[in-house]
Design a protein around this nucleic acid. Structure first.
Lengths: 172, 172
DNA sequence: TTATCATGGATAACTATTATCCGCAATAGC
DNA sequence: GCTATTGCGGATAATAGTTATCCATGATAA
């Protein structure tokens, strides 16, 4: 059981995008630089997030990414599912009917109890992720983390975000 | 996020071993045949279970595997951790401090909030698995599944289990 | 017109999983 | 003892999935 590294990158990027002002955007290259990631690969993951309606992208010289909705309505589950896919971690291969003792198909209409138990645990996992809002993550970071780290993060966002044409933004 | 196929095999084998009488054992080859799996690879997973003290193995012509403790005290979590390893699915790479903006190490003493949230969800997952006892799985199977399937399973166990020398076993 | 940036496809490098094979040790039955 | 059966461990290959890179394309602000 393993989660891809893209999940960590996606959550950090989303948390960073929660700090940009209004409709301003942040280039993917800037976020790749901020976390020491390869730009071309990070864009793949950001693309997954835009495809799922979590991020919005703006092309062009002043373009970049921004959250598609307020951080209060984005959960860690949204991000994890967007990057890792919606399929459950446990996939029942129905090996109970793969042996040499072939019974009629009608003997297997009831779902496999093992599969049910595994999926129940996975629902608990997803429920816990669904309760973690991106705004909570950001708030906890700003109140708990080292002030130097918070200041550096805010400075980075202020330096790299690009205000959009038809919106009023306040530059820090 | 993906669980290896060995998990499904391991749980099915453990459930089957819960049906053997007393100290009797069942050869790994028989279980591989029952589920249509490659014997040599299944033994690898069974080996993980024995290494973690979930199964016992007996070498020799009448040898095989049996549960190391009653099915009431074996949970799905025990099996999943034995096969998949104990490491959490989400591994924090600390990418927050991998960027070009190097702060002093003392700025990162507080644990990463994202990591904490992901691990909290994983604890919920494991807690749900820890509540699923192997005996519950077997009981649900015997009461809910198709009677033909149950009968076939019991017959297979009765046919392939090997009673041990120094123990009294009742042959069905 | 130009430079910047997202998008998508193609592709390669790398890693983990899945699978197989063989020699070894243990042991029940003859 | 001898033999056949079985688990154990190491070595190794085949396969799939992840990670990473590159390039051509389209959009757009200056």
């Amino acid at each position: 059981m393993k989660l891809g590294e893209g999940v960590e990158a996606a959550i950090h990027c989303a948390a960073m995008l929660a700090g940009v002002d209004g409709a301003a955007t942040m280039p993917g290259a800037a976020m790749a630089e901020a976390f020491g990631l390869s730009p071309s690969y990070l864009l793949k993951h950001l693309n997954m997030l835009t495809a799922q309606g979590i991020l919005e992208s703006v092309p062009g010289p002043a373009g970049g990414y921004r959250l598609a909705r307020p951080a209060e309505r984005i959960t860690l589950l949204d991000i994890v599912l967007a990057v890792e896919g919606r399929e459950p971690a446990f996939r029942c291969g129905e090996i109970r009917q793969r042996g040499p003792v072939r019974l009629d198909a009608s003997a297997y209409v009831k779902p496999c109890g093992i599969n049910a138990a595994m999926l129940k645990a996975e629902r608990a996992y997803r429920a816990a992720l669904a309760e973690a809002r991106l705004s909570d993550i950001v708030a906890a970071y700003q109140s708990d983390a080292d002030p130097r780290s918070v200041a550096a993060g805010c400075a980075f966002v202020a330096r790299h975000q690009r205000p959009q044409k038809s919106s009023s933004t306040k530059q820090a």
